[in-house]
């Protein structure tokens, strides 16, 4: 789809990513590179820290009366429901199950630990990359045509801010493709459009819902062309 960006290509973009001025594709390129480049990752972290500190200059204003109680009410509503206490018998049964699972996990883990050193290093790099922008998830999904042919990839990033990036290569027709995000309740959210030229397009968009709430993303182009990416 695209070449992996190198340090020379990424360095000029680091400040824009740190301030939030980068476009979606630029941000995606930088995050892809910093996943495996310590030097650029460190540089980005330093610039992001400076940009964040700049926000200290915003003048303070007392909020309207009732603000504090309104916030605390929202926090209370957001708190996970407290579990009901378990009976002693139920508690004992749960404990036995937990112990059995733990023993199995330890035995399995010892074997897996030896076999997955590379994966663990990659996972650590991935976590470190996400942490630069408060990220939680970075997910890539294939975009398929109605006949099952892969025509691109959609990247979903949950962080501060969250975004999605649509990359098409070999779309059936050129023109404007309307994008719709469908959540797990089946509600469709129109989320913008991208222009396809010569079958290709790369567009980034802000994402206003959690990645885990998204069921699929569909792209509808000229002449009834319908493309979809499913999260599961």
């Amino acid at each position: 789809m695209t070449d992996r960006p190198d340090c020379e290509g990424v360095r000029p973009l680091l400040a824009e990513v740190a301030t939030g001025a980068a476009t979606g594709p630029e941000r995606a390129a930088v995050l892809l590179h910093t996943a495996t480049c310590d030097a650029c990752r460190t540089e980005l972290a330093g610039l992001a820290k400076a940009a964040d500190e700049l926000l200290l200059l915003a003048p303070a204003h007392e909020p309207p009366t009732g603000f504090e109680s309104a916030v605390l009410n929202r926090l209370h509503e957001a708190r996970p429901a407290r579990r009901t206490p378990m009976s002693k018998r139920s508690w004992t049964r749960h404990l036995a199950v937990v112990c059995a699972v733990l023993v199995a996990a330890v035995l399995t883990g010892a074997v897996v630990w030896q076999a997955t050193a590379t994966d663990r290093r990659l996972a650590a790099e991935h976590r470190q990359t996400l942490s630069v922008a408060g990220g939680r998830y970075l997910k890539a999904l294939p975009i398929l045509s109605s006949t099952g042919v892969r025509t691109g990839t959609v990247f979903l990033y949950q962080g501060e801010p969250s975004w999605l990036l649509v990359s098409l290569a070999g779309a059936p027709t050129d023109g404007e493709y309307r994008m719709t995000v469908i959540d797990r309740d089946g509600v469709a959210h129109p989320s913008g459009a991208c222009q396809v030229r010569h079958g290709d397009a790369v567009e980034g968009y802000p994402l206003y819902r959690a990645v885990t709430e998204i069921a699929r993303i569909q792209l509808d182009g000229p002449g009834g062309v319908h493309l979809e990416a499913h999260t599961a």
């Binding site: 915003a58 303070a60 204003h61 007392e62 909020p63 504090e68």
Partner: peptide
């Protein structure tokens, strides 16, 4: 919230 509400509201208003 009490400690930071003026800073947060001020930045949001800005």
């Amino acid at each position: 919230v009490r400690r930071y509400q003026a800073r947060v509201f001020g930045l949001a208003l800005t």
